[in-house]
């Protein structure tokens, strides 16, 4: 089972400490949500984890191996990363975009191996895109496009999926659909770490929560341990009412 372990990770740029000694770990089967207000350092933390941003100190280990030293292709096969900025320069057909996720398995041209075919099909099914597979991406809606990006991340069949605001710009129904896809992935043994801004969505889906504020991790653990009205007030400055997995935001503190 996959395990990502982050130990005292810090990122400093000039005088600014963007991430301050953050430690956390995620295992297969867990659906972890990273919470925190804008500028708390969530995206920088994710980027540092996958090696996109150089960490100043600390370490990241994926299944016991240090991530910065990991070969790109190997890393991509073990860890799928869906960045916040999800651009598509050309109107490729949906299936071709999803197939890009197989690059780390050696898919270069337009002749996928049986393994590639199977993975592409599975990703299309999981994200409910089978009927749109041949459509050019410039004819899709925002919700459909978000699923395409999710599908190509799933297509790598990496046991760990890290996504930065996968529900950004999605309406409620599409946001739930996206979270369902991610939850299915976790329930099948995958590890999920996503950044979310929607507290209610996080409360409904997460098994684990990590709270960031001012570059520091202020709390981390299971949903039951860390989701409290006091913490929402402390980290986000909002009043909330929490009943089990149901959370409503009542207004600013």
């Amino acid at each position: 089972m996959t395990e990502l372990r982050v130990d005292k990770l810090s990122v400093t740029v000039g005088d600014a400490t963007l991430v301050d000694e953050v430690s956390l770990s995620i295992k297969g089967g867990q659906f972890a949500v990273l919470l925190g207000p804008n500028g708390a350092g969530k995206t920088t933390l994710l980027r540092a984890m996958i090696g996109g941003v150089k960490m100043t100190s600390g370490s990241v280990h994926l299944d016991g191996k240090a991530v910065p030293g990991l070969d790109r292709m190997k890393r991509a096969r073990r860890l799928s990363y869906l960045p916040q900025q999800r651009s598509l320069a050309w109107p490729l057909p949906v299936r071709d975009v999803v197939a890009l996720g197989r690059y780390c398995h050696g898919l270069r041209g337009s002749r996928p191996s049986p393994d590639d075919e199977r993975a592409i099909q599975r990703a299309l099914v999981a994200t409910d895109l089978v009927e749109l597979a041949e459509r050019p991406t410039n004819t899709l809606s925002g919700g459909e496009l978000a699923r395409v990006h999710c599908a190509r991340a799933l297509c790598a069949e990496a046991p760990l999926l890290i996504a930065d605001e996968p529900t950004a710009a999605l309406d409620l129904r599409h946001a739930f659909a996206m979270m369902d896809v991610l939850r299915d992935f976790a329930e099948q043994g995958g590890a999920v770490l996503v950044v979310l801004h929607d507290l209610a969505l996080a409360a409904r889906y997460a098994t684990h929560l990590f709270w960031m504020k001012n570059a520091c991790l202020v709390a981390g653990g299971t949903l039951e341990e860390t989701l409290t009205e006091a913490r929402c007030a402390e980290v986000y400055g909002v009043r909330t009412t929490i009943r089990g997995r149901s959370l409503s935001v009542d207004g600013p503190v």
């Binding site: 996958i50 996109g52 790109r72 292709m73 890393r75 991509a76 096969r77 860890l79 799928s80 990363y81 869906l82 960045p83 900025q85 999800r86 651009s87 598509l88 320069a89 050309w90 490729l92 071709d96 975009v97 890009l100 996720g101 690059y103 780390c104 270069r108 041209g109 990006h149 190509r152 790598a156």
Partner: peptide, 17 residues
């Protein structure tokens, strides 16, 4: 084949290997 991957932007392409 790198240009195909770059369709997704540099950050995604980098994450894909």
């Amino acid at each position: 084949s790198g240009y195909r991957l770059l369709s997704l932007g540099e950050e995604s392409a980098e994450a894909l290997g």
